[in-house]
């Protein structure tokens, strides 16, 4: 899983060639509680690193999901519309949010790898 990178806002991005798949982490879904709705960007939309790309809603909270890197949205996870609970049950798998065509791979270097993210989360307690 060395091709997965993490942000301090608890998003993950998995790189496959020039496409990055983006979702929220196990820690984030736990903090949110039961996810009831996910607002996804439109395919074709340009997202920028740190900019708002999606919104994830639990019963009592709505949180922005920020794009970890610049890119153009090429696909969104339509399954979340009917089954938002996927974000809770499988946040790093079937609960992915959207995919972007990576614009600048060097932006990934600034993100955390799994070990760094793990110790970052531990530091939050």
């Amino acid at each position: 899983m060395s091709n997965v990178k993490y942000t301090q806002d608890h998003e993950w991005v998995r790189i496959d060639g020039d496409v990055g798949t983006i979702g929220i982490t196990e820690y984030a879904q736990e903090q949110l509680g039961d996810v009831v709705f996910v607002e996804l960007p439109e395919v074709g939309k340009a997202v920028t690193k740190g900019g708002e790309a999606a919104v994830v809603e639990s019963v009592k909270a709505a949180s922005e999901v920020f794009a970890p890197i610049d890119g153009e949205v090429v696909e969104v996870n339509d399954a979340l519309a009917g089954e938002p609970g996927l974000v809770n049950s499988d946040p790093t798998g079937q609960g992915w949010f959207f995919k972007v065509r990576v614009k600048d791979a060097s932006q990934l270097d600034a993100l955390m790898d799994e070990a760094a993210y793990k110790s970052f989360v531990e530091g939050l307690h």
Binding site: V36, F37, E57, S58, K60, A61, A62
Partner: peptide, 12 residues
């Protein structure tokens, strides 16, 4: 669907 409302979304 109260996440639409002011006490949750505040300025959004």
């Amino acid at each position: 669907l109260s996440t639409r409302e002011q006490h949750i979304r505040r300025e959004k």
